[in-house]
Design a protein around this nucleic acid. Structure first.
Lengths: 209, 209, 209, 209
DNA sequence: CATGAATGAGCGTTCATTCAT
DNA sequence: AATGAATGAACGCTCATTCAT
């Protein structure tokens, strides 16, 4: 802060700023593999190439580290998608497909899949995290979806099914695919995208007027 | 020895026979709350009103207890449903609705919901369990669903969508509902059955010829 | 005691009388294999074909069972040998050889070897047992040996070495052989009797006048 | 890093280097008192003034700690003695006496006596340890002794008794003395050195031509 | 007399957390 | 800022011992 120049910010400082993100990334991988209780901070540290003690310079304890993993990984995606939806000019069918494309593109990345799985696995132990997630991410997302359905009904594209009361169900094929992949990708092969696309087509047909 | 066997089965024997089930039920609850690694066998024992050591009279170790929880809870349900499907006489739409009704009735019970959540949470740490599950439960279930879809297409009720390649996706709304309930039932209310029914209606419409 | 006839003493009674011995024999084997702390009473019971609880009908606890093993296994041997020595008529060399023959014959039996090893292994935890052993078995034995040496010196067969002050050392080759066999019988072969005999010859030569 | 290394080695580093030896010494004492299975690592730790967990920073588990006790305590002694024997210039009698002097000096120290007792007590449970011992320590020792006997026979000092086939028996008085001391030192007094010396004299006389 | 289900204290081992360096 | 040695609480598992049957 009181340091004269930006150049002065040397390697050390750069390292220091990068640390939390490095740790979170490492932790995410280990949490995903071993679960919360099963994760050893030593493994997390080793993956970053630092010592166990160093983690405690950046995070109060294991629980806070876990929360940071969840919080800092999802972020902007939902907002971006909602903005896109608000200004979309084509048909509502195309809008819905675009939304599915984005959401599934995000959730098909291992990192994000991990978050979902972790939330399911450990949610009960971290109620604040769940309600944070619900209010900050899921809630707005649901409202966005509801708006899209209403847009389709208003334009005469969709029938007025009760689905606008449960917009989150639109995402069920995405969620099911993620879980299927997570559980059985080693047991048998499963074409995530083809399965999803097929199901979406059926669902869209069901929505159409 | 020379005593009539039926009367002889005293309190002790009755207790002994009941123990495994009691322990599994208790374990199911605690595993669901705390995850596999987070579960303390002492908690499991206390819930049954026995001592820690007693668990080891019936299960070799924590892992075997966990497996028993999964194995002994699901079992017959899938087979029953498949038999029903094989002999069903009404329309395929009605058959599909009946299948959904059964599956969701089962999965809406806390005990069975727990199994699904546990499988998602701990699957990665128990590959044998997952593949056991996949081959014994899920695989047959998928084949059953595929047969139903084909029945509908053959009878002219359903269009020939690609969904017969991914029959498991038919279950996605059930799965999503279970997860939604698990995660957010404390945060906000969610009418499991209404949500499911609404989504199913939409999906069925999508399937119809 | 107040029972009319000897025949009346049925199978049950015979069993009951035999039990302690059976248990001790089994325990001896397990103690020898696993040491005191390492021995599980369940293993002892299983070897006899009874249940764990039954042991407690005959022995107060594990420690008492161990003591019984040591106490009841040695018995008459020393006394017999001393009586033989007192009435022996040949040369003292021959007497000494006969003593060695008897002692080593006894200690080469696995059961008796076991006692010696157990005493060495666990003696420190059972001081009473050690002093019982010392006063009842070892002490008289030493006095017997001292008498033999003095007999040899008196008759002019042996020189008057200081060995009469440490008669127990005469037994050292026997003890060393037992231990050697115990430790290394699996590693390499070792002719217990030949080794012993050879050493004794040397020692006897050393004693001769 | 840029600090002169020798001075840098602070208290911590010094402690860390000393730890394994401290722990082994403590463990040796407790193992000797309680046997392998009977030893509580907490007791070992307490004796050093550290916590139970610290032991695991230096040894993988109880068994490895036990092995370390055996390995790190004997080591160089045999080699030193053998080198001495190879270059000894006096009579073979004197050489043999010198060997006895060294071996018994070593084994009369409580620490080394402990090792022998432990080996006898726990050998059956640690076959690798026993065979390690046999090949690395005992085997060479025996060959050394055999060479000495042959040297004596060659020089005409000793008769050609069969003892060169069982050289280990030469050590039997030492072994017997150690065991006697271990078992009965509390029961009665026993002059280890006098007993040994007397017996050796007898034995040497037996060897002489 | 015998059983064996049940107990509960105890120990080996792990690991989140601390703190002197 | 970073380390890593040390801690100590916690937990899985074992087994001597008890006691209802």
């Amino acid at each position: 802060m009181s340091v004269p120049a930006a150049q002065k910010k040397g390697i050390r400082a750069a390292q220091k700023e990068a640390r939390p993100k490095e740790i979170v990334e490492s932790a995410l991988a280990i949490f995903a593999r071993d679960g919360f209780a099963g994760t050893r901070l030593e493994d997390v540290a080793e993956r970053v190439g630092i010592s166990k003690g160093t983690i405690y310079l950046y995070f109060d304890n294991k629980e806070e580290l876990f929360k940071a993993c969840v919080r800092e990984t999802v972020g902007a995606h939902i907002q971006q998608t909602m903005q896109m939806a608000a200004t979309f000019e084509g048909s509502t069918s195309d809008l819905l497909r675009e939304i599915f494309r984005r959401v599934s593109a995000t959730l098909s990345k291992p990192g994000y899949r991990t978050i979902l799985i972790l939330l399911i696995s450990e949610g009960q132990r971290f109620p604040e995290l769940v309600s944070f997630y619900h209010s900050e991410m899921i809630g707005p997302g649901i409202e966005g979806l509801r708006a899209v359905i209403k847009r389709g009904v208003a334009s005469g594209e969709f029938r007025d099914t009760g689905l606008s009361d449960f917009p989150m169900m639109l995402m069920s094929p995405v969620i099911a695919s993620v879980i299927w992949t997570h559980l059985f990708s080693k047991v048998g092969d499963f074409d995530f995208n083809a399965a999803l696309q097929t199901h979406l087509d059926t669902m869209m047909d069901g929505l159409k007027a």
